[in-house]
Each structure stands twice: as C-alpha cells, then as structure tokens.
Amino acid sequence: MAIPAFRPVSYSRTTLTELMIPSYANFGGKIHGGILLSLMDKVAYACSAKHAGNYCVTVTVDGVHFLQPVEVGELVSLLASVNYVGNTSLMVGIKVIAENVKTGIVKHTNTSYFTMVAKGDDDKPTQVPGLTLENHEDARRFLEAIKRRELAQRYQTELAEAKHGIAVEAELYKLEGERCQLAYTL
C-alpha cells in the first residue's frame, strides 16, 4: 500500500495511558522523571510512525518541563500529535496529564516536543507525508513548531560561535556573584 502525500493531524493523534506503580517511584515517593521520559518516547514513536508509515527514531527532545510531580497510583495519559513535518522529520507535541482516580483531580504535569526522523527499509531517512491542518489549533501548532525550529537553529549557531569565540580572561568578570571559584591562576 502506497503512503499518501498528506495525512491529517487526527490520523496519528495518539494517547498512551498507564498506571503509575510503586516500582516507578523515587525515594521521595514521586514518579521518576526517567519513567515519564521513556513513556513520552514511546508515544512519540507511536504517533510519528503512524503518520510516517515507517519506523521512526528520536533525534531531539525539546522543552521537557516537569510542571508538577506524578504520584504512585495516578493514571498518566500522554497525548501526542504531529505538530510539524519537514521532508523526513516530524515534530511531535506531547502533553502529559495525571489523574487521581479517587479524587477525580486531573493535573497537567509535563509538556515536551520530540523531533523524530522516519527511516526506510534501507535504514536511511525517508520522506514523510505532508500534514493536513484540520483547524485553527493545528495551524497554530504548526507555526509554533516553525518558530521552535528557528530558535533551536539560532541557539546551536550562537553556541558554536561562543565555544570558539570566548576570551575567558575577558569574560571572567561574569563569574562574580556566581556559585563557583577558580582553582587555578591566570
């Protein structure tokens, strides 16, 4: 079956729900961030692979914001949708919510953006279908993803320039008031 030229956002929208069990908890009784990251990676894969019609791999994880802790016994739902597609890449937005089934309280605990790349049978990046934006919210998310990509590219460029262009001696004044000390002499 041929992969279509375009697929709607709704085609690959994915929800993964899992009960948070005691073995997922840290010593403080809260769910490990790594458990949540693993679940986010799974839902990003499921969402992107469904859209792409191919195996997908994680390239970057952007903006993992742990807004509230997740407790043992809560149901965690990860809501994923393709927000943007390039030629071979997809940006998947993920919203994580936790529900206390006893109280009925639902809280937004995490947000993240995963960039995935589709791989063909030859294990090389392969083109993904375009994205049909079905409503105003889909268009807003696509435009936001473009801005997110632009900012990431600018950050990488500036960081690379800074690595090669920092004159340490001239910048040492910036360490004043910071929680560090020099253990060497200039």
Rank of each mutant, 00 (worst) to 15 (best):
R140A: 15
I166K: 02
G104A: 03
V70D: 01
Y173G: 04
E74K: 07
T15L: 12
N100Y: 10
N100L: 06
A49G: 12
F27R: 13
N110C: 09
L131A: 07
T126Q: 08
V101T: 15
L79W: 06
Y84Q: 12
G120W: 03
Y84P: 00
L182A: 13
V70A: 07
Y11H: 15
L159T: 08
V101M: 15
H164N: 13
E178P: 00
S112W: 05
G120Y: 02
T58A: 15
A44Y: 03
G130V: 05
V82R: 06
D138R: 07
A49D: 11
D122T: 01
R154W: 08
G29L: 08
G34C: 04
L151D: 12
S10Y: 00
N110T: 13
D62P: 02
V106G: 01
H136M: 10
Y155T: 12
L19E: 14
L75V: 09
D138H: 12
A44Q: 00
A139V: 14
V168L: 11
G33F: 04
V76G: 03
P129H: 04
K50M: 15
Y11G: 02
T60Q: 05
L143W: 04
V76P: 04
L133A: 08
E18R: 10
E134W: 08
G86R: 02
G86K: 01
Y173C: 00
M1I: 12
F142P: 04
R149L: 05
G104C: 07
A2V: 14
L151F: 01
V96F: 00
K42L: 15
Y24A: 14
